[in-house]
């Protein structure tokens, strides 16, 4: 039916896990495929139709100059551009290079680094083009993805929970690992969406869904230091899959300065 919105999935520097989440929505996949016209989704289909597209899902971060140009074209072709996952939303784990020396990184990995074309930074899609909606997660949650797609198909603006992971822990009856076991956990400053998995498995949250709105990372960092962590140990806690999200970046930089005694 021609009234079905067209869907396109684009990949930049990423692991494919977020777009795989769509295929992982086993129960809803065929319904989704019936509700939208999948026009461009190379991972799932050899049929690749040209744009424009109604809904574009963009996975991955911008790490090459070619991709920096390609995202502009994707934006032009897309009515509603939604980023999926931590790479597209915050630069991903590969944004660790943003604190390092990319040339040296290349040397460490490749015998002939001079052949490699890459930018020195890994940046979020929103640093390059206007993004209409960001779906967080490393990886995204396929229930959330289906919910967001449903809302777009129904023509309403998607809304995903903006509360902290703690709320979900408490709803599911998980005992706080920080309070009961002294494990540093990013739950209080991390946006919910994963279902609060890690504390339910006896480990601290490591921030897959990025900073919750108005998060108070500084207070949490100070508390961990007051209870025995060193600033240096805490830097990687904030500096991982969403480490380049502004709030976590600021906190890891602050801790790094403290670790260096600045």
């Amino acid at each position: 039916m021609s009234t079905r919105p067209t869907l396109a999935v684009f990949k930049f520097a990423s692991c494919d896990g977020c777009q795989l989440s769509l295929l992982d929505a086993e129960d809803e996949l065929l319904a989704v495929a019936g509700a939208v016209d999948i026009a461009f989704f190379p991972e799932a289909s050899s049929r690749m139709l040209p744009g424009p597209y109604d809904i574009a899902l963009v996975e991955g971060s911008i790490t090459t100059s070619h991709d920096a140009e390609r995202i502009q074209e994707v934006r032009k072709q897309s009515r509603f551009l939604m980023t999926i996952g931590a790479c597209a939303t915050a630069g991903g784990i590969q944004a660790l290079r943003n604190w390092g020396d990319t040339a040296e990184f290349l040397q460490a990995v490749y015998a002939r680094p001079e052949y490699i074309s890459t930018l020195a930074t890994s940046t979020a899609i929103a640093d390059h083009v206007t993004v209409d909606f960001e779906l967080r997660g490393c990886p995204i949650n396929h229930h959330q993805l289906v919910e967001v797609l449903s809302s777009l198909i129904a023509g309403r603006r998607p809304r995903t929970p903006t509360h902290s992971v703690c709320l979900d822990c408490k709803r599911r009856g998980t005992v706080c690992v920080t309070v009961a076991q002294g494990i540093p956990c990013l739950g209080p400053v991390t946006q919910a969406g994963c279902g609060a998995i890690c504390p339910a498995y006896d480990r601290g949250c490591y921030g897959c869904y990025g900073p919750v709105k108005q998060c108070n990372s500084e207070s949490l960092g100070d508390h961990f230091i007051a209870t025995g962590s060193t600033p240096g140990e805490l830097v990687p806690l904030f500096r991982n899959f969403n480490g380049y999200a502004p709030e976590f970046r600021a906190e890891s930089d602050r801790l790094a300065r403290r670790a260096e005694g600045v």
Binding site: E28, K170, G187, P188, V189, Q214, S219
Partner: peptide, 28 residues
């Protein structure tokens, strides 16, 4: 400056009663 606004106090409180209602629907 200290509060994380993380909701823990309200969740563990035996009297806090705030709730919200969500729509859960099938794709159709």
């Amino acid at each position: 400056t200290r509060c994380l606004s993380c909701t823990n106090c309200t969740m563990v409180c035996p009297t806090c009663f705030c709730a919200s209602v969500n729509e859960v629907s099938d794709l159709q």
